[in-house]
């Protein structure tokens, strides 16, 4: 392991899953702490902020969505990968919408989870210096204005509130305005996934960004190019 041992927090209410995940992730080279419910997870983060969180959505009492919301509300931008036991879209939608970065559906391949966590961790470490652009650097496409220094997004006069991952997706699309980006390329640029992975997390996030940009009836800016990927441009 060339990278320093990353500190993971596994939040899972089922003892069997928690035990096997702890062991599997530890043997994959992570330092693993665990919590069995939402309050426990927040306490653990409060003690020491982990490098990434693996969070079960179906926690009793305070569920995973509430945990993500609480983490983001407390200004922790630690990467969060949620585990969902349901393959209906609604479930992961709320998890990601609350600010999680990615999701895997149970039962998942441990290797896949490990690869995604490593990518999210690398991305988090690398993104830090890149997020200090020069003051006044603004990306503008049609009515859309992204102020990179202030990390603010406006459509016309309206301020748009995006989660971290949504913001990063929009910046990548805006920097490549009029360029069609494939899902794979977006996974690489936004999530740091430089490996083949079967996920529709890009589509889900594009959906959120669209919904927020088009909230007041603004014409579509992020277009789907069927069979290829997505492109940000004004007009059709």
């Amino acid at each position: 392991m060339s990278e320093p041992t990353a500190d993971l927090l596994v939040v899972e209410d089922d003892a069997d899953v928690r035990a096997s995940l702890e062991r599997g992730l530890r043997l994959s080279g992570f330092a693993v702490r665990s919590a069995q419910d939402g309050p426990g997870a927040l306490r653990a983060v409060h003690e020491r902020v982990p490098d990434a969180v693996v969070l079960d959505l179906g926690l009793p009492g305070m569920d995973g969505v509430a945990v993500v919301s609480a983490l983001r509300a407390m200004d922790h931008d630690v990467p969060v990968c949620v585990l969902s036991a349901r393959d209906t879209v609604d479930d992961r939608v709320v998890g990601l919408e609350a600010g999680a970065d990615d999701y895997v559906v149970k039962p998942f391949a441990l290797a896949e989870l490990v690869a995604r966590l490593r990518a999210l961790l690398r991305r988090g470490a690398r993104a830090a210096p890149a997020t200090t652009p020069e003051l006044g650097e603004v990306l503008a496409v049609g009515p859309l204005r992204v102020d990179l220094a202030r990390r603010t997004v406006h459509v016309g006069e309206r301020a748009v509130d995006l989660t971290k991952r949504e913001y990063e997706l929009l910046v990548v699309l805006a920097r490549n305005a009029d360029v069609v980006l494939t899902r794979e390329r977006l996974l690489e640029l936004v999530w740091g996934y430089d490996f083949a992975t079967d996920t529709n997390v890009v589509d889900v996030f594009v959906g959120y960004v669209r919904r927020k940009l088009e909230a007041d009836g603004t014409p579509r800016l992020v277009h789907t190019v069927r069979g290829v990927g997505f492109v940000l441009r004004e007009g059709g």
Partner: peptide, 14 residues
Amino acid sequence: LRTPLTAMRTDLEV
């Protein structure tokens, strides 16, 4: 069913 299957799969991969 997914919950125990998740644990099993992780254990088997380990």
